[in-house]
Amino acid sequence: MKTNQFLFGLKNLDRGQTMKVAIFANDDMTSNIIFAQLFNMSDIQITGLYIAASPRKGTSSIIGGAISLLRRMAFGYWLFLVFTNGAFKVYEFLTLVFRCSPQTGTFYSLRRAAQLRGVRYRKVADFSSPEIAAELQNSNVDLLIIRVGDILQPKILDIPHYGTWCVHSSLLPSFKGIAGEFHALRTKRAPIGSTVFEVTPSLDEGTPLGQVAIQRDETGSVFQHMVNNNIAAGKLLASMVLQAFQCSAPSFELYTPQSQLKSSYHSWPKPDELKVLHRQRKALITPGEAMRLMLAAFRWG
């Protein structure tokens, strides 16, 4: 167990107040799954939902960012991301147009949930911009929760009264970087899970505050592990925020076998790394999962 010292400051929060939380997230399926539970919590006020304008910094659109990433990873993994996130974008479009409920099966639309709760929604090219800083200050944000690749400047990190948390899809310090589930699954006996850590100016270097591990299935796909890990991460995050709001003594779960957590860093999956996964007879996504994902995209799941 780990006690997070800075959370004791939350005892200064009046019981009659709500906890004000801002969210920085990527515009992808996984971020929407992870942050979904926060929109179902009556004890917190989400002051703003800030979504990355592109999957890669320096580009201004989803398509442009996706094309620029093609040169940085195995083509098969790129197709996997395009398919899963493309299905999510179809789902989000239909959900917004027909004003449906935010959730169907695997999918959850944070944008639709923000509409229903009257939460400010913005596409963002620079999360450290003066405009974003001003909005956070004016909102009097208590806690900032992020899942973006940007390294936030100190002027942003200094704004939330009780700090900034990041949700990362690996058991830190193992598999820092990108595609945590993929790299853990292709590595024999590597544990798979998620970490909520305190954000510092250095990427993925903050102190782990809470961790959750999921069951590793040697017959399962990367997609299966990704979804299960995102759901587990969302539950962990929600319980941590609730404890913080209730001012209870923080006691967040940390993955126990620390000896297994070797420090490592991985970037986007390369062709030879994808071949290792295939040699182990593991799939990125199975045909059945792909079919169910398409049905969910059209809200038939």
Rank of each mutant, 00 (worst) to 15 (best):
M1E: 11
T3V: 14
Q5H: 12
F8C: 04
L13C: 10
T18E: 10
M19H: 01
K20W: 00
F24I: 04
D27I: 00
D28K: 09
S31N: 09
S31P: 02
F39K: 01
M41A: 09
D43R: 02
I46F: 04
Y50T: 04
R56G: 00
I62Q: 15
G65M: 03
L69N: 12
T84D: 01
N85Q: 08
K89H: 14
T95N: 14
V97A: 12
V97N: 00
F107V: 08
S109T: 09
S109A: 11
L110T: 08
A113E: 06
A114D: 04
Q115G: 00
Q115H: 12
V119D: 05
K123L: 14
V124K: 01
D126T: 03
P130G: 05
E131G: 07
I132N: 05
A134E: 14
A134L: 12
A134Q: 14
Q137D: 11
N138R: 14
V141A: 05
D142K: 02
I146Q: 13
R147P: 01
L152S: 10
K155L: 04
I156M: 11
D158V: 03
P160Y: 01
G163N: 05
G163T: 04
T164F: 00
L172G: 07
S174Y: 01
G177W: 10
A184D: 09
R186S: 11
A190D: 06
I192N: 06
T195M: 04
F197T: 01
V199G: 01
P201C: 08
P201S: 07
G210Q: 04
Q211V: 03
V212S: 06
I214P: 06
D217M: 05
F223L: 10
Q224P: 00
H225C: 09
N228D: 15
N229C: 14
N229A: 01
A232G: 06
V241M: 03
L242R: 14
F245N: 11
Y255P: 08
T256L: 09
T256F: 00
P257I: 02
S259V: 09
Q260M: 13
Y265Q: 02
H266S: 12
K270A: 13
D272F: 09
E273T: 10
E273D: 13
K275S: 11
H278S: 07
R279S: 11
Q280K: 15
I285N: 10
I285H: 10
L293Y: 08
F298W: 13
